[in-house]
Design a protein around this nucleic acid. Structure first.
Lengths: 193, 193, 193, 193
DNA sequence: GATGAATGAGACTTCATTCAT
DNA sequence: GATGAATGAAGTCTCATTCAT
């Protein structure tokens, strides 16, 4: 069981993302997903309490990416630069690898959903990583200390969300990576020492 | 005819907003709207091709507010301050007067809709007003000139959207006005001369 | 006016029938008709109180055909044979010249319409012609006299409607003309002297 | 479960027919039906792909009646007489028990519908019963053998449809039972031995 | 853990028809 | 006579979600 066939849950997740890429989030129905993953309505709702919940699995993908990036970064790099670096790398990756309408759906859904707002979940690798860098930056005197670590983290993440949201709103008619490279330093200017 | 009864379209809009305030966007059905406005499905879909389209009429409300604000502002006020002032006033008004779930719905909808993205419509009073102030500011030497007028306008509006979006994402658990008063100067710091 | 351009009413009729042939009765909307005839909703409803009424203009076409047939028939022909002849000629013509779904629509509509039931209108050329032949037949002793003229006319027309209806019900998968040639004599057998 | 509540589908059918009797076919809306049967649009369209489809359930009612009649008929009765007997009984029953506009709607709908034409479905009890009697009649020498069993069955059913259709076309202004009693022998005369 | 028939809610469509101008 | 914006009525579709087995 455990070895020979993928778990039902992971079959659902794979199928869902495959379909999301092909047909977009709203264009994909739960029926499509269970058909491709060869399961049933019952199983789907056994593992996920709602279709939206699948979108949250996107943050897992993103967090894996942050994990990788963390490895790659030189620890001695200037902390402020680290933030800009992370931002540029991630936004470039999103632009290349993730369908824009998925991002749009994710942001759209989180705005109106009642439940867990994954984008803001403080336990994500993302938040832990940013927090760590800000802390380190303040200690090293490379990031301004007139705001708390969590205040800066929150501000930074708001700026990132702003860049992604606007890119989605504009239907991707410019480069997310490049626009972020240009704007992020402006938005963070105050915190550079 | 002309005097005695409001046009059908405006009856629909009024009814819709009344209901949106009472029951929220998702809580309001098209049937509710046509019942309160005493019209019919046919008429509703004759004027609006989709329920979402009603949300766009929110920008009319906002633009009316910008009109008012423009009157109130002292022309000699520092241009950079004008931007911060507008931001604070508007966000305070939104916080007080507009149901958060309407803003959330508006932003959510615009992210995934195919059609006109009202939030970005350059012809809105909003854009024309910001553009005018930025222009004036550069002329007067109160706003930095290392970016074009339209670039700054766009950046400024992105920052505003970020603040509103994040407030919605956080379900309004802090003051939008106050948070904007604190963050907007940071975000705009680069453009202050 | 009178000479140079066709009357609005006849433009509507032509357009309607052209469209009925192309798209069927139900497939043709009043909007289609007014577009092709280059008139307006108002005009359409000025001339026809309902879309169904257009179908009635079909009986004019049929009656023209009966007029023709009457000319062609030898007056001395046996009256009973005349009835069979008329039946065969008409049903063959229908099969060739008239779209089956128009006949189906005509019959279908008349079954449920409140208004005038053209199919039964005793003033039609059709009824006048059949009545004349039956009368003549009884006088000549070629048609059985144990039923009144109007009784036989009515019976005869019911049989014709039966053949057409059934042909429509079967979606025309056999020859209306041939099936009528075979069945009509059976149905009328009693009246042959 | 099994005992306590009727299936949703049959609740819909019952409600529909109750309403059809009260308000006629066109006078009954799908909303009425789901309200009375205490179900939902979703369920309705899960079981029936269109409102018209409900009319087809009429043949079930008719077939039940044929079942009954078959029991009542003396097996030794002359086969030709059996056909006339069946015809008279059924048409009398229709006249008494079934709203004329339902029959009209059924015939009207079947003329223009794309789908299954219930009226012609050879598997109905009706066709099986008529076929059996014709077969038996030919064997016994009570029904003429110059046409095939299926040819005669088809002809017979066409005659019955003719009588019902015309009755509907005339809005029931005479007795269907009596008119059938008078005409059916004329129409079938050829097959009497 | 799995299943899928059944449900509920509401958006949206379609058109013939009306009516003030 | 003509116009077409506006209407009304009902049918149909779409799906996420639930629940008895």
């Amino acid at each position: 069981m455990s070895e020979e066939k993928k778990s039902v849950k992971s079959r659902i997740v794979s199928a869902a993302w495959q379909l999301f890429y092909e047909k977009g989030y709203n264009g994909t129905t739960v029926d499509d997903i269970i058909e491709l993953s060869d399961t049933s309505k019952g199983s789907f709702y056994y593992y996920f309490s709602t279709k939206d919940e699948l979108l949250n699995t996107l943050s897992v993908i993103l967090d894996d990416f942050y994990e990788e990036l963390e490895q790659k970064m030189e620890p001695e790099m200037n902390s402020f630069e680290k933030l800009l670096y992370l931002n540029y790398e991630t936004h470039s990756m999103m632009e290349e690898k993730i369908r824009i309408d998925l991002l749009a759906s994710l942001y759209s859904t989180q705005l109106v959903s009642q439940g867990n707002r994954n984008l803001l979940d403080q336990n994500r690798k993302y938040y832990r990583l940013i927090t760590k860098i800000v802390e380190e930056g303040q200690k090293r005197g490379q990031i301004c200390s007139d705001m708390t670590v969590s205040g800066i983290t929150r501000y930074y993440s708001m700026c990132e969300r702003a860049l992604v949201s606007d890119w989605c709103l504009n239907k991707g008619d410019y480069s997310l990576g490049e626009y972020s490279r240009k704007c992020m330093p402006l938005m963070m200017e105050h915190f550079r020492v």
